[in-house]
Structures are given as structure tokens and as C-alpha cells.
Amino acid sequence: MSNSILLVNPPAEVPRECYDTPDYPAIGIASVAGYLLKNGIECSVIDGKLSRLSVDDTIRQIIGRQPRILGLTAMTHMIVTAHKIAAAVKDQCPETIVVLGGFHGSFLPERTLREFPSFDYIVVGEGEIAFHKFVRAIFDGGDPSAIQGVASRQGQTIRINGRGEIADNLDELGMPAWELFPPARMYPVMSQRGCPFGCNFCSRPYGRKVRRRSVEHVIAEIKRNIEQFGCTTTDFYDETFTVNKKHAAALCNAIIAEGINRKVRFWGYVHANTIDLPTARLLKEANFSSVGFGVESGNPQIMARMKKGVGPEDVLRAARVLREAKL
């Protein structure tokens, strides 16, 4: 068995949601792959959803490659399918080390390892640095269970070493490795991680501290996506794109100055309390065709209980602003 690393976004057995049949690649495994490549470690990917593979097709492709390390990502609605794939691979390739990443394992690492025996390890939280260190430990004969952010079995005990190490300077993580994926209609970009709001229905996967990439690094990625992958549509996956209006304005102004707004259509999330008319007009000029913001309820009492910091009047004001800006 070679030292090959394979990262897989499993397909849904029965597609139910729009994100089960996406026209965009999986940014999570792409970011992990990009960081591995940046550090001189070769890897490959299978995006079962983007490629419209069946579960059986995905299993056959994985077994055909016989990876030494298999990384699977899964949200909660995909965890059973991910384990089905892991178990089938383990049956044919028992030496393959299976590592789970993604939201489900990150929030329920102990339960997941107890329920699903074919997962050998879980990377908890942001995966780029932790998974890179995990791979190095495997290749160098070290102890991967000692790495920050790695959960593992120790006999009947589950060992959890906190959440994965995070990068305060997101530029250091590099760019998603879209070159490993089939062509897509849309290529997502994250310019920042974290959200300061206290919505009690949110898992806050990146924490409440907001960490930003430099404007130059984000613009370089968008230009690369245009030149190398023919990108014409980009969604910003920031939890709240306008959480810092100076950052949002700097990005929009750079997009306009570089002429990117004539080549790419943008979309992003905003918060009702972070949008005003000048910001909305700048988004429009930068070729944001629309934005999204949550309106979970129109009931003032329910909205107060959610601790989002908005009421019906804030939502209506934001909607009027966006409408005036023609977004």
C-alpha cells in the first residue's frame, strides 16, 4: 500500500436537499487538500456529490485506489452513509486508516466513535493544520492520537484532544485545491471565519472570534479561479460577509478596481444589523446579484429568545435597504 491520501465528499444515497446535488465543489476537503499540497504532500479527492456518483460507485473508486489514509467528511444527515462507505472500504482494504472530518464528528466525537466502529479517528474542528499533522505523524511513525484536534480510541476509552489548531492568519492556509476537482459552475470563497453573534440555534463552527484573510489574498484567489477554472459565479461562504463593513468595502472596491465585477457574479450572507444603504449599493456595484439573510421568525418574542439581536423592525429595515439598492 502506498502513502496515498484520498479525501472524499460522500454522495447522498437518496438526495433530498439542494446541497445533495450541488453545482459547486466541496470547500472543506478542498481547503484541507490545498494545505497539504502547500506543505508538499500529494493527495487526491473524490467529490461524490459534484460528480453525481452513487454510493457503490464511490466505494469502488476508493477501493481501486487503495489509499493509506482515507478522509471522509459528513454532516449529520450524511453520517450513516459515510460510515457505510468506511465499512465497505475497511472490508476490502483493512490497512486503510479512515479519518472523519466535518460538522457531525466535530460536535459529537465521542458518540460518533462509539456508534461507528469503521472510523479510526476524527479531526475535530478546523481540519487543515490538524489533518496535516496527522498525516505527518502516520508517515513518520509518530502517535497521531496525541495531536491537538484528533479524537481516537484507546481501548474502551475515547481520547479527545480538544479542537484542531486554528490559523489566526488565514492567508497561511493557502487556497482550496480546485485543480483536483471536476469543473464546476460555481467556486465558493471564504474571506473570513467566525461570527460574533450569539444566535442560540447556531453551532458556531468557527467560533465567535472573526479571523480575516487579507484582501490581496482573496482577490488573488478569485483571479486564479477565473483564469484557471473559468469561474463566472462565486458565493462567499463567510458566515456574515458584512460583519466588518471596512473589510467588506475593501473587498468590493478591489473587485471593482480589478474589473472582476465584469466577469464574476457574487452572492453572500449578511445580517440585518450589518447592512446599510452605502454598503448595499457597493455590493451591487461589485456585482452581487443578491444576498441572503435569515428571517427565522416574525414573532418578536421568538426572535428575542433566539438571541440573534434583531427584531421584526430590523428585518424590515434591512429588506427596504436591499430593495432600494436593487439587490
Rank of each mutant, 00 (worst) to 15 (best):
F197S: 05
E258P: 14
V210K: 01
N225I: 00
V243E: 05
C252H: 08
N273F: 00
F266Q: 04
A250E: 15
I226P: 14
K209L: 13
K223P: 10
R212I: 01
N244S: 14
V210Q: 02
M190L: 10
C231L: 09
I226Y: 10
S214Y: 08
V270Q: 02
F197V: 03
I260H: 03
K209Q: 15
N273A: 12
K263T: 14
E221R: 01
M186C: 08
V243S: 07
P196A: 05
N261H: 14
I255T: 03
T242N: 12
C252W: 01
Y237W: 09
R185Q: 13
R204P: 02
C252D: 11
I222V: 14
I255A: 08
F197N: 11
T232V: 12
G207W: 01
N200E: 12
V243H: 03
R208H: 15
G230W: 05
I256Y: 10
I275K: 06
C199F: 06
Q228F: 07
E258G: 09
K245I: 02
S214T: 11
S203K: 07
P196K: 02
T274W: 04
D276L: 00
N225T: 02
G194D: 06
A250W: 01
E221D: 14
S191P: 11
M190Y: 03
V270A: 09
C199H: 08
R208D: 10
N273G: 11
V264S: 09
D238Q: 08
F201N: 13
H247P: 12
Y269G: 07
G198T: 05
N244Q: 06
V189Q: 08
V210R: 02
W267V: 00
Q228L: 11
K263M: 15
T274K: 14
G268Y: 03
R262T: 15
R208W: 09
N273C: 07
A248C: 13
D238Y: 03
G259D: 13
G207K: 01
A250K: 03
E216G: 14
D276S: 00
Y269V: 04
D235K: 01
A272E: 09
H217R: 07
Q192W: 01
R224C: 13
I226T: 06
F241S: 04
S203A: 13
A184H: 10
E227D: 15
M190D: 03
E227V: 00
Y269P: 10
G207N: 06
N200D: 15
R193Q: 14
D276T: 00
E227G: 04
V215F: 04
R193E: 13
Q228M: 10
S214P: 08
A184N: 13
T234Q: 07
C195S: 11
S191N: 05
K209D: 14
I222D: 09
N225S: 10
R185H: 09
S214A: 06
C195N: 05
T242H: 07
I219Q: 01
A220I: 02
V189A: 11
H247C: 06
E258C: 07
I255K: 03
E227P: 12
T240E: 12
